[in-house]
Amino acid sequence: MSLSALARRDAAETLEPIASPQIQPVGDRRGIAVALDGLTKSFGDREVLRRLDLRIAPGEFVAIVGRSGGGKSTLLRLLAGLETPSNGTIRLDGAALSGLTPDVRMLFQDARLLPWQRVVDNVGIARGKDWRARALESLQDVGLADRAGEWPSVLSGGQRQRVALARALVSRPRLLLLDEPFGALDALTRLDMQKLLSTIWARDGFTTVLITHDVREAVTLADRVLVLRDGAIACDRRVLVPRPRPVDDPQVLRLEKELLAAV
């Protein structure tokens, strides 16, 4: 079964994928199932996320749009294990999330490369067995193998984000979190990055959660688009248009309009 087909399956069917061995065989490095139940996060008196319930199927590409301050980044940081929920649970493949795990990787708006380490050393930052070979392989995937020996400071913004993507992919994550990683890039570089991410996602099949303020980006890339408003899901839509999606596709345009209204 193709991954997009998998992702397009009925939501009800993907609620309990954990026990099903056909979907998640032991040792398979495909996407992880995400389950949020009553997830609440407050900072002081301010409730940023309110009793959020959400199921994400393994290998699904979910985009979350919303105004700033709507709780998007907080949700992502909770999924990454960088924050702990005030209430409710996060389960990955049925197991409660407990802190940081190599199964989950995150890309930030800034690439966050160590300026004092060469590109390849940045990609292999987690070290471990054969890290250099694996880092080079990952750089190959993002088309930057020839820049392995450079300092990050000589790279362009887009190249830095590609290095950050390579770094995230080294450990073959099963959940990739993206916090507006293309927000600071120029339009053309942005399109390149979107294409690259799509290709790698289609190949590796990790579950992806992308935060963006760009509704068009969300509709172009994702299987499913959520609108997060005031800490709750205001809208949840599947994008059924086959990829690659032309921007002038009537269904895409209609969805874009609907989502913009919901934001």
Partner: peptide
């Protein structure tokens, strides 16, 4: 840069590393 420290933690670096 706090962001770099957070990134390091996210990638599982020990306190020493």
């Amino acid at each position: 840069d706090r962001g770099l420290i957070e990134m390091g933690r996210l990638y599982g670096l020990s306190s020493g590393a």
